[in-house]
Design a protein around this nucleic acid. Structure first.
Lengths: 125, 125
DNA sequence: GGGGCTTTTTACAAAGTTTTTACAAGTTGC
DNA sequence: GCAACTTGTAAAAACTTTGTAAAAAGCCCC
């Protein structure tokens, strides 16, 4: 899955995590993160919308190609595995937005006010 | 197979393995490696993209001239025979990238981050 | 046309990945 | 507080990909 939009995306980097979209590689504290394809797809989608809430349906749509009718827990399980691989920073990075979806936050993002220049709910909830 | 691109390629050499593309000869710890044609084609393609992941389809395309529609296990079998001939270093040299393809790594390549100056997925995944 | 070699296929085992299941824990609104 | 609903988690099941051995098929040269 993960159709379209591979057009020249700048790498992501903060003090602990970096993602190189071109090379489909991620590193945590300079160590390569070994991600499966779905894990990578999910993480990179979240990271590319850092600071924005992405609804579950949008994630399931983009990463899995699932429409709203499909009921599955696979997203939760993948988020869990991503968090595990993010180690101590997991909760810093991946927030659960209850009833809506998830949000990736750059390491030092302000905890209360979110960015002003971006929609806070992404991908046409 | 193995069309085009034979234009003056520098030999490869690390502490155990060397490939002389001009003479189509390989040596492991100074002993000549006896490779069949396909084995050589495959190894030299991998080596010429050392450090990069080469997707299965690219290998099947370049070495066998197969398009994506062909389903075959011959690549796996050839990788196996190459590994056998690489002896103890096999796993050091030829990595399996699950779900994608293979990657040749020079003997002492850093294990985590791969070179920054080269695409990590080669040949148009 | 038969021996010796290479390559491909086949069939199964092993390893890796993804999804489901079942239940625990958390959240919300009454 | 409690019922309804959502998310977290571990483990199992289902599925996919890769590894391997052996047989079959293809080649080449005499």
């Amino acid at each position: 899955m993960l159709t379209g939009n591979n057009h020249q995306v700048m790498p992501y980097r903060d003090e602990h995590l970096s993602l190189d979209f071109e090379h489909q590689a991620a590193a945590l504290d300079s160590e390569r993160m070994m991600l499966t394809r779905k894990e990578y797809d999910l993480l990179s989608l979240l990271v590319q919308h850092a600071g924005e809430i992405i609804p579950r349906e949008a994630l399931l749509m983009q990463v899995w190609g699932y429409g709203a009718e499909i009921r599955t827990r696979t997203l939760d399980v993948h988020v869990r595995r991503l968090r595990k691989k993010l180690g101590a920073y997991a909760d810093q990075y991946i927030e659960t937005i209850f009833g809506i979806g998830y949000r990736f936050q750059p390491y030092h993002a302000p905890r209360f006010f979110t960015a002003m220049n971006k929609p806070v709910i992404a991908m046409g909830a």
